[in-house]
């Protein structure tokens, strides 16, 4: 290992940076979509009529039981079939991640929604809000606030998970790093560098979460 080659890292930085942007894009879009769909699932689970409750429970439990890689394969195969023409890897991956993450966000949301006290629910109704308004103006805002640290932690996990698009060769940060690694024959350099980059990003994120949790307690 005496011949650790920094040059190869420096030269590939622009390429890696493009990969990192893809990772962030995927994280961000899947986060929004997953959160939205997850919230709907949670609301269905708590307040929905029996069939919706049931659907939500089955959906969440199935997605939480199978590996993300399998989900990626599923949609890589399924999406073109359903749409009837090939779509890019990115679209398939985004759909897979959104639907998969939604199951986890649904559980977080459910816990968050249940954390809003009954008194608050009654208070909203008592001032004459409709159940939908009550959800929108009273319950969801409080639930979100309680959940921000957990949601952020899940976002960090999602960011780490995006490395799995490696299995369908979507050129995210991880895939880019491994392309350079193989082409240049510099495996140690590239994988250690990838580890370092992920660590710095995720560790900073987790420090932020800790900070927010402290503030919440205070």
């Amino acid at each position: 290992m005496g011949d650790f080659d920094f040059q190869v890292i420096i030269e590939s930085l622009p390429f890696l940076f493009d990969g990192l942007l893809i990772s962030f894009q995927l994280t961000f879009l899947a986060l929004i979509a997953g959160l939205a769909w997850g919230t709907i699932l949670a609301v269905m689970r708590i307040w929905g009529p029996a069939p919706l409750r049931w659907f939500s429970a089955v959906y969440v439990n199935i997605f939480r039981s199978i590996p993300l890689i399998l989900v990626i394969f599923w949609f890589y195969f399924l999406v073109p079939l359903l749409i009837g023409r090939p779509v890019g890897n990115f679209t398939s991956a985004l759909i897979a991640f959104s639907l998969f993450e939604a199951a986890y966000y649904a559980e977080i949301m459910r816990a968050g929604l249940n954390s809003v006290s009954r008194g608050q629910v009654y208070a909203g109704l008592a001032i004459g809000l409709s159940p939908r308004q009550n959800l929108q103006y009273v319950i969801l805002p409080q639930a979100f606030r309680n959940m921000i640290p957990v949601l952020l932690t899940q976002a960090i996990i999602l960011f780490q998970d995006t490395s799995l698009v490696y299995v369908v060769a979507l050129s995210d940060f991880m895939t880019s790093a491994s392309v350079v690694a193989k082409v240049e024959g510099r495996l140690a350099e590239m994988y250690l560098f990838a580890a370092l980059v992920y660590f710095v990003i995720c560790f900073s994120g987790s420090l932020l979460v800790k900070h927010l949790q402290k503030k919440k307690v205070a």
């Binding site: 994988y191 992920y198 660590f199």
Partner: peptide
């Protein structure tokens, strides 16, 4: 912190390709 903040896939490749070196 080390093992939590690096994706498992990256760790796997480090164990497989780097650690033996």
């Amino acid at each position: 912190e080390l093992f939590r903040n690096i994706p498992l896939l990256v760790q796997l490749f480090v164990w497989y390709f780097v650690v033996p070196e």
